[in-house]
Amino acid sequence: MEFPEEFKYTEDHEWVMVEEGLAVIGISDFAQDALGDVVFVELPEVGVVLEAGKAFGVVESVKAVSDIYAPIAGTVEEINDELVDAPEIINTSPYEDGWMIKIRMIDASAADNLMDAEAYQALIAEES
């Protein structure tokens, strides 16, 4: 299982990558593996303001429904439309093609407080 060093992670298994003032958000390799085959994704509309820690979307596997939580606050700038028709991309490419949303952060340094790859791996080692 991979956990890119340059990403930040949350206890709810989302990842965040900050580029050019935007935070790109998805779910971790651990999360996609635990879910199993992803068959449905529901994402917010562009322009919606997300509150940190609040659910912003849903991923469904064959068996289960899971909320996805906003790691940091911000306004949705872009959503990954491809996931609507091909949600399985989240399984095959959780960190690249499987990104979910890009948000304009309210506090540009908010991501600094999230876990780094090492801390996140320690967390999931504890959970599993």
Binding site: G36, D37, V39, S61, V62, K63
Partner: peptide, 20 residues
């Protein structure tokens, strides 16, 4: 296999993946 508690039984819920 990924194992789950199924009505008190330790059972496999999936091996390679449900759809596969």
């Amino acid at each position: 296999a990924r194992m789950v508690d199924f009505g008190g039984w330790d059972m496999p819920v999936q091996y390679s993946g449900v759809i596969d």
